[in-house]
């Protein structure tokens, strides 16, 4: 009897969270889908009505759309490549007996705590500025003309900034995974005469594979929605050279007031993210059973 009571009680206790999250996600998402089939521009709100697939057609046939999809993928894969490879190497390095490891760890983790607008502006003004930036001074020192980063390589510049923010995350997670590596297994491999590289390939890397998967999936979720870094550095330009899907939808909604078109873009972004989410849920779900 007590159990039945507790069961009911626990349902009630869980209810507020479930209701809130339901309202937060399902209701707006339904509204987005509804708007995506409506002709609705805030500049001309009286002209509303069912619009069929027009918003989707208009959004997808916009030349900016393919640029945005391409940029989104480049941004995600570029940052992932840098942070995973860098994270594995740095994790291995920080796992060694280093003097003052605590302080070194703090130095490495710090960029992760910097708010996106601040880190983007530090890089834009103080490092990448073609006249006053540190990089310009360094290239002048070597007699190379300085690069105007955001005009010449806008997307790559944003990749560098975002990678700087996320490398600490990857390093920290992969280091944590490394620290649980079985020492005896390593020693056994030593006895059998395994070299550094074969030990890394056959023991360390398989041990880290799970953590690497988690890093990839979590970063992907966040990287698909990169916004502030683009807003304060390039505004998506020049042209559409650094516009990603998130920025394109923002541009449609809050700069062009095209509610219908922005909603269609939002639905497309949700579909893309869901493909990633399915994989993430699977890999985290396995852990829940273990």
């Amino acid at each position: 009897m007590a159990t039945t009571q507790t069961k009911t009680l626990s349902r009630i206790m869980n209810l507020p969270a479930i209701v809130l999250l339901f309202i937060w996600m399902i209701v707006p998402l339904t509204m987005t889908i509804y708007y995506s089939f409506q002709r609705y521009n805030l500049l001309n709100p009286s002209r509303r009505g069912f619009n069929g697939w027009f918003n989707y057609e208009f959004f997808i046939t916009d030349p900016a759309f393919f640029a945005a999809i391409g940029n989104t993928l480049l941004l995600v894969t570029g940052v992932l490549a840098i942070t995973i490879i860098g994270g594995v190497l740095l994790g291995l390095l920080l796992n060694q007996a280093i003097l003052g490891r605590g302080i070194v760890r703090i130095l490495f983790i710090s960029p992760f705590f910097i708010m996106p607008t601040v880190s983007a502006l530090i890089w834009k003004n103080m490092l990448m500025n073609p006249i006053y930036g540190i990089f310009a001074h360094i290239s002048e020192f070597f007699g190379v003309p300085p690069t105007d980063f955001f005009a010449v390589i806008p997307l790559l510049s944003i990749v560098i900034i975002v990678a700087w923010q996320w490398l600490p995350f990857a390093t920290l997670i992969l280091l944590t995974a490394l620290q649980s590596l079985d020492q005896e297994q390593q020693e056994a491999a030593d006895m059998d005469g395994a070299g550094i590289f074969s030990k890394f390939y056959y023991i360390t890397l398989p041990h880290m594979s799970r953590a690497i998967t988690v890093v990839i999936l979590i970063e992907t979720i966040f990287l698909l929605s990169i916004f502030a870094e683009i807003l304060v550095t390039t505004n998506g330009g020049p042209g559409t050279a650094s516009t990603n899907l998130t920025y394109m939808v923002y541009n449609r909604a809050l700069l062009q007031y095209d509610i219908g078109g922005a909603s269609a873009g939002g639905v497309i972004a949700v579909i893309l993210a869901n493909i990633v989410a399915i994989f993430l849920i699977r890999s985290v779900g396995k852990n829940l059973e273990a």
Binding site: L224, T246, A262
Partner: peptide
Amino acid sequence: MMPPVGVLV
């Protein structure tokens, strides 16, 4: 996992 732009509007 829902991207914020999906519910921005």
